[in-house]
Nucleic acid binder design. Structure first.
Lengths: 341, 341
DNA sequence: ACAGGCAATGTTAACGATAACATAAACGAC
DNA sequence: GTCGTTTATGTTATCGTTAACATTGCCTGT
């Protein structure tokens, strides 16, 4: 009379304890770092655990200890080298402490961001990192009341919720405008998206306009190239548009290196010399800008540095080494390359 | 006599229940979709919850119901448009069911992958998706014993652990070699990384060698360009190397579009005409290949499709609509563009 | 008018770990 | 040799939610 194989529930610490002849508490200690368990006992426990196929249950641990070891992170898009670098820096900085990243993306939409933040907070992260400083009212409330460290990145919010690790997108673009003007360009255009979804892109356009006006120059050569975030294709289309409508333009600043590269290729297709007939500037210091011919003048916002600083900040706050809201600014570098010589 | 503000523990369902005058169980039901609660009661509960600043505790829910609503995913690198697209397709397909992605990256290292898999399994995901079919023995064991659906992607493992959603990297490259030969190229080189870290890259190189030999052609023009995954810079370096050492080479197939683009720029810097003097093929159908001048012949492995199919498969398995291990092949497309005309 | 059914809600115990406290044994200082 | 201290381990109760079962009341059909 053979029974059907029982559904065989996965083993728990109690099973490991039974197999080793100790109490569950000792098993629990054996899986911690600093706990006081004799080497022999720990060895026996871990071996029994491996033999039984026991896998630590982080959920139960979390519920009792009220520590999830999660850090929640929202980024606009997972498919973006800049944000990926920030997550990389963050992840590396948190790894040694056993903090795991719970990642979500908002698709550049603050309503989606609100939904995402709520979902993430349900997992009770130890801290939450959001990209950007613009949120729905409810999202702000959720973050404020979450009772955990909140870090806004990639931006310089006028009214920060908690901590900030970022920079001013507008000021960064101003630096590039200043450079272009100093080199002698006057009829300068800006290529960006056509909506306010991408707030960092919008800030860059506003920074462009303000900087041009500060120089007493015409700030109306604005090409809106499609729904943000715009990429290579839209950059190329925008350059086509620009060359047809405003052919006397001498230089163009693009909202990103990707659109700048697209714009560059359109010049190549049309035989427009870069930088001879058209100078180009980008934003973001993507790899492509360093490799393409001609290489692209750009702004390096140090995405990995943002992530690394955010990680360090989180650890300091968790260790109570820091109690007041921090505002960490990482001034972006202007990188001069062939496209604006 | 003012007391110091109490640490004010975050409200629980019991608090919401008290505030609404119902039992905690009814509050629990109000937060579910299908549960039987009257509209009036649910409304009152949700309003009270919002007023108290209550946030659902997914950890406790998970522990009791044994459902985490997590799907674990490992990718080699977060900073890669192909894998990002796969995660995007996966995420979109799982979102409607409330399944959240728990993402980790292995840095192209199967030892790191093992560590990561163990970490992820501790969170008790409903399913686990791994990139690639090569794992450490212990990782294989962990996956096999996890008791959840396992899906290997982006590959065609010889001995699958569970389900597979992928394609043969070797066969895909063979298709490109066949094309190059048909068009008349004979002295064809391959540019890739110099180690076995990136198993998909290695498979592509092996596919190249096999295909060349099948045509009776010299398969020794192999340029190793650095630690995988190689990118634009390494592609440029490799092309420089190739042009100096094997100047009679007529065409080159690169392990990725990124290295192919780097190789292309090196040709541009040296005045080597593409495709006139050197034809180039890439892999991955990255955006850059469609935009650059000349545009790049490439292979489209349909990363988003891999993600979407994986999501659909996971839902089918969870719903028990499918019980046997699935092997879903998405044959990559060869995309012919200017760089190999 | 009453059985049967369904909708809305309540009660109890449990998910699997560990914080907090308790205890036993070993060790050293004087 | 006694006492305090440290080390290794055990016991009990609990984290916040929900599965499973129980109950109440209202509606429907005959």
């Amino acid at each position: 009379m053979t029974r059907p194989a029982p559904p065989r529930k996965p083993p728990t610490m109690a099973d490991v304890a039974l197999a080793t002849g100790v109490s569950p508490m000792t098993v629990s200690r054996a899986f911690k770092r600093d706990a006081s368990v004799s080497d022999a006992t720990r060895e026996a426990i871990l071996q029994a655990a491996e033999g039984l196929g026991y896998v630590f249950d982080a959920t139960a641990s979390t519920l009792r200890s009220q520590k999830t070891n999660f850090v929640a992170v929202t980024i606009p898009s997972i498919n973006n080298a800049n944000f990926a670098d920030t997550v990389g820096g963050l992840s590396d900085g948190l790894k040694e402490r056993g903090l795991q990243i719970l990642l979500g993306y908002t698709n550049y939409d603050i309503v989606e961001e609100e939904r995402l933040i709520e979902q993430l907070l349900r997992r009770r992260p130890e801290a939450i990192v959001v990209t950007g400083g613009k949120h729905t009212d409810r999202a702000r409330r959720l973050l404020t009341n979450a009772g955990i460290p909140v870090i806004e990145t990639w931006d310089l919010p006028s009214a920060p919720i908690g901590h900030v690790v970022g920079f001013s997108n507008a000021l960064a673009v101003r630096g590039m405008v200043d450079h272009f003007v100093a080199v002698g360009y006057r009829r300068i255009a800006f290529i960006g998206g056509d909506a306010h979804r991408d707030t960092r892109g919008t800030d860059r356009r506003l920074g462009f306009i303000a900087a041009m006006q500060a120089h007493g120059l015409d700030a109306t050569r604005l090409i809106a190239a499609g729904v943000p975030p715009i990429s290579m294709r839209e950059g190329a289309d925008a350059m086509a548009h620009l060359l047809e409508r405003l052919p006397d333009t001498e230089a163009v600043i693009c909202v990103s290196d990707l659109s700048a590269f697209g714009a560059l290729t359109e010049c190549q297709r049309r035989g427009v010399l870069v930088p001879g007939q058209m100078a180009i500037g980008g934003f973001g210091n993507y790899e492509i800008g360093a490799i393409c011919v001609p290489s692209l003048t750009t702004i390096n916002p140090d995405p990995r540095g943002i992530g690394a600083n955010t990680a360090a900040l989180i650890l300091d706050v968790i260790d109570s080494k820091r109690t007041d809201p921090a505002v960490i600014m990482l001034p972006p570098d202007l990188i001069l390359r062939q496209s604006s010589r």
